[in-house]
């Protein structure tokens, strides 16, 4: 029985003959050709095949090969790559994870938007820069008391030490609240609830939102914050750009806010850009009205 089975494959059946016929014809085709890679790294491969109908087809494949960046390593450097570890590195645990790739994307943070000129801030009619030109003595930071270094709003220590003025500026009503919290002496008070903290953050938030804020609506979905910044920068110093993004779909909701340092710049931007065609849409630019609730 076994011998019978062994001989069977060599015996050709008429049904198989037909199929193999097509393959046998491959020797009739011209050989495969490889051209390149040329100076640009482009390689051409020309092959010939029979398609289902038995016709001869020429197939040309063009590929580009790129050289690896570190192909220029010197011979010694390649050799060093295989040096055995020594010192403390020999008994290094696999799990010690001495070398890690940062999970955070770190960017080279530009001090101002690329392409903009430093002189831009010193535009004529900018009262801030006029003053700083007049004399650095005028510039006294109310937060840290430094003279001629920075303005109060630009103080790098702003977040650390809150100015004492916030207490004195408070309306008398909130004085009661402070007194009330003072009554429960000894009990833990969260930092956010400590004297004047709530009042302070409240006013901070409000100030940030309504300070020369411009609302931009009818934005296209592709518009991102850098685009908006690019659009509004020519009118003056921009302190904040925000595009509303839908939390679920992470698509733009079609509106955003731009805060200007100067009110006049904001007004000019509104005059110029309201009704401006941007990305096939007509922009609507107006003063952002504070929320009424």
């Amino acid at each position: 029985m076994a011998t019978q089975f062994a001989t069977q494959p060599s015996k050709q059946r008429w049904a198989e003959m037909e199929e193999e016929d097509g393959e046998d014809l491959d020797f009739l085709l011209p050989p495969k050709q490889v051209i390149g890679p040329d100076v640009n790294g482009i390689k051409k491969v020309i092959e010939y095949k029979f398609n289902e109908d038995g016709n001869k087809v020429k197939i040309t494949t063009t590929t580009r090969t790129r050289k690896l960046a570190n192909a220029r390593l010197s011979k010694q450097a390649v050799e060093r790559r295989s040096w055995p570890k020594f010192g403390d590195a020999v008994h290094e645990d696999v799990g010690s994870r001495l070398t890690m790739v940062s999970t955070e994307e770190i960017l080279l943070e530009r001090p101002r938007a690329p392409g903009s000129k430093p002189e831009e801030a010193k535009a004529a009619g900018d009262p801030l820069s006029q003053m700083s030109k007049g004399g650095a003595v005028l510039m006294v930071c109310r937060t840290c008391g430094k003279k001629g270094d920075h303005w109060t709003s630009r103080c790098p220590y702003k977040d650390l030490a809150q100015p004492s003025e916030t207490y004195t500026d408070k309306p008398p009503g909130s004085e009661l609240a402070t007194a009330a919290s003072g009554a429960t002496k000894g009990a833990y008070v969260p930092p956010g609830m400590r004297g004047g903290a709530a009042e302070r953050t409240g006013s901070d938030m409000r100030r940030r939102n309504d300070e020369n804020s411009v609302r931009v609506t009818n934005l296209s979905e592709d518009t991102r914050e850098p685009d908006l910044l690019e659009l509004f920068r020519p009118f003056g110093a921009v302190s904040r750009v925000y595009v509303a993004i839908d939390q679920k779909t992470s698509m733009s909701r079609g509106f955003g806010f731009v805060n200007f340092v100067n009110r006049e710049d904001a007004q000019r931007a509104i005059n110029k850009l309201n009704g401006y065609g941007y990305d096939n849409l007509i922009l609507r630019v107006e003063w952002a009205t504070p929320r009424t609730n």
Binding site: D88, L98, T99, M100, S102, E105, I106, L107, L108
Partner: peptide
């Protein structure tokens, strides 16, 4: 860029 952090020291 994502820097590589080396904590050997």
């Amino acid at each position: 860029m994502r820097p590589i952090l080396m904590k050997g020291h």
